[in-house]
Design a protein around this nucleic acid. Structure first.
Lengths: 107, 107
DNA sequence: TCAATTAGGTTTGCAACACAAACTTGTATG
DNA sequence: CATACAAGTTTGTGTTGCAAACCTAATTGA
């Protein structure tokens, strides 16, 4: 009856999960960025299936949080937006993953 | 370089995850309901640490979705709101858990 | 006896968010 | 040059999560 055992103590902490990573669209973006060497806007657009506007605003939020760095360059006069996960972003994602798996495996 | 391997095909599906369960407060509510015989409003209030209003509105959403059934009774003239996870709710939660673990374990 | 308090929830109000449509800026093409 | 296209960004909108305010009924106390 009591919820004071290890199993249940864990799940309470789901309330404090990192919501920036928790949002599915951003979780996907981070996972992709961490799995490839380099990614640009169009690559992410294809891989995620998000609309351009949506992708753009999620990237801005991740940048503001310091999880992703955005670099703009020109290749043959065509703009190219390069996205990279920062160390902080990598840590945040790994923490999220670990905690979330821990929580879900004990329900 | 390509993302067409098993690992990455999985994560794309995070976009279609069940958002009703994905919300931390509701995930917690469902997990608690599935782990105890019976729970009333006040018990959930204590266990979750949510405010009354917040708990109430999350429960309404879960009820609307058919994940939780809400029964009101009176005990010594005091109202008591009984919450139970439905079979559908139990299935939804289990599916969420399985899919989410699968996704997170392959990043 | 009847104001004030407490208990158990619900409704309302609001800031933040996710999303897509519309816009912007710049390049190629007819 | 104007028309279309490409690469993003900004704007607009409906939805959400949250807590404050509210409601209803029971209890207390003066």
């Amino acid at each position: 009856m009591s919820l004071d055992n290890k199993k249940d103590k864990g799940i309470q902490s789901v309330i404090q999960i990192d919501r920036l990573v928790h949002e599915p669209a951003r979780m996907l973006i981070m996972a992709i960025l961490l799995s490839v060497e380099n990614a640009d806007f169009l690559f992410l657009l294809k891989q995620t299936g998000l609309t351009r506007g949506n992708l753009s605003s999620h990237l801005s939020k991740l940048e503001t949080a310091g999880y992703v760095s955005i670099t703009k360059e020109f290749v043959d006069k065509i703009p190219r937006t390069l996205l990279t996960a920062t160390d902080g972003g990598s840590d945040a994602f790994e923490n999220y993953r670990r905690r979330m798996i821990g929580i879900l495996e004990n329900c």
